[in-house]
Design a protein around this nucleic acid. Structure first.
Lengths: 167, 167
DNA sequence: CTAAGACTTCAAGTAAACTTGAGGTCAAGC
DNA sequence: GCTTGACCTCAAGTTTACTTGAAGTCTTAG
C-alpha cells in the first residue's frame, strides 16, 4: 500500500524525499487524473522511479497549490502556466524565482480582488443606498476605451450614462 | 438599423423602454450568442416583439452585468443562477429583491476575496520573509475537516505540518 | 415598398479542463 | 515469491460555456 519512499530514488536524505502521485493527490486535494493532465500540458513535471512511476519533489506541492488557487479563481491554466514559467521545476526554486513569478500573479490577482471588492460594494452598499451605477467595474470594462472611442461612428444613444442607474 | 424602441411594445414611456439584443450586447459586452445561451439555461429572460424578436427591460442589464462578473471570477453559471433566483426577471426588481440575492453573493465573494488576499500575502510577504506555509488557505482546504478527521485510519505521515514549508 | 441589416431557431462544432476505462505493470507486506 | 493495491499509458467520453452556420423572418431608413 504505502508507495512513497523506500525505493532506489529516495535515499531517505532529508530534503530529498520524493512523493508518489497518490501522496501528492491526497495532500493537495488534486485528483491523480488532474495531475496527469497538468503534466501533459506542461504545468508540472515529475521524476520517475525505476519502474516509470511518478515521483514528485516536495517543492511541487507548492506549485500545485498555486495552480489550484489560480484555477479556482477562474484564471485559465494557460495563463497560470505563463506566470509560473520563471519558476524552475527540475530544481528547488529559489526565493528569487518565486519573486519573479510573483510580479505576474500580483497584477492578475490585484485586478480580480479589486473587481470583487467593487462588486461587493455595489451589492452591499450601493444597492442599500439606492445608487446602482455600475460604470467603473474593471472586470466589466476591460478595454472599453477602445469600444467607446473606437473607429465606427455609432451614435445610437445619447443619455448613455443613465443606463445602469436604478429608478 | 437602430432596432430598439419604436414598435408597439415600447410606447416611449419613461422607464418602460425595451432594448434589442444588439443594444444589450453592445452595452454589456456580452455576445448575442451568449445572451441566447443565458436565456436557454434560464439565467435571463426576455419579452418578445410582435415579430418574435427579443426585447429586454432595462433592469436586465444589471442582471447580465452581475452574471458577467461572477462568471469571470470563475463562479459556475449554475451557482450564479441559484444566487439570482430571488431576483425577479419579469418585473423590475426591488431593493429588497437585490438584498436577498446579495446574501448569497456576499458569502461566495467574501471567500474568494479572502483567498486572493491570502495568496497575495503569501506570494508577496511570506515568500520574501522565507515563511512559506500554505496551511490555512480557504480555497485550498474547502472541507478538509472531513478529509483529515474522516473515516479511514490513514496514518502515513507524522510531521505533516512541515510539508509546505521552505528550506 | 423594398433592400439591407438585425434578428429568429435549431443543430452542430469548439475549447478548456478534466474524468473514466481498458489493459497492463510496479512495489511491498506477508 | 506472490498477491494486492497503487501505478502506468492511451483513447475516448464528459461538462461547461459558449460559437458558428444555415435557412429563413423582422424592422426600418429611404
Amino acid at each position: 500500500m504505502d508507495t512513497n519512499g523506500g525505493d532506489e530514488l529516495s535515499h531517505k536524505m532529508p530534503g530529498q524525499e520524493l512523493l508518489s502521485i497518490g501522496t501528492v493527490s491526497e495532500r493537495t486535494g488534486v485528483a491523480r487524473s488532474a495531475l496527469h493532465y497538468y503534466e501533459d500540458v506542461g504545468l508540472i513535471a515529475s521524476l520517475r522511479s525505476a519502474g516509470n512511476q511518478r515521483r514528485y519533489p516536495r517543492h511541487m506541492l507548492r506549485r500545485i497549490s498555486l495552480i489550484t488557487v489560480g484555477s479556482k479563481l477562474g484564471i485559465p491554466l494557460n495563463d497560470i502556466k505563463r506566470a509560473l514559467e520563471p519558476v524552475p521545476m527540475n530544481t528547488m526554486p529559489s526565493e528569487a524565482d518565486w519573486l519573479r513569478a510573483t510580479a505576474e500573479w500580483k497584477r492578475v490577482l490585484e485586478a480580480r480582488r479589486r473587481a470583487i471588492e467593487e462588486l461587493e460594494d455595489r451589492l452591499m452598499g450601493c444597492i442599500g443606498c439606492g445608487c446602482l451605477s455600475m460604470q467603473a467595474c474593471t472586470l466589466l470594462n476591460p478595454e472599453d476605451a477602445l469600444a467607446r472611442e473606437g473607429s465606427g461612428a455609432r451614435r445610437l444613444e445619447a443619455a448613455d450614462d443613465e443606463d445602469l442607474r436604478a429608478t
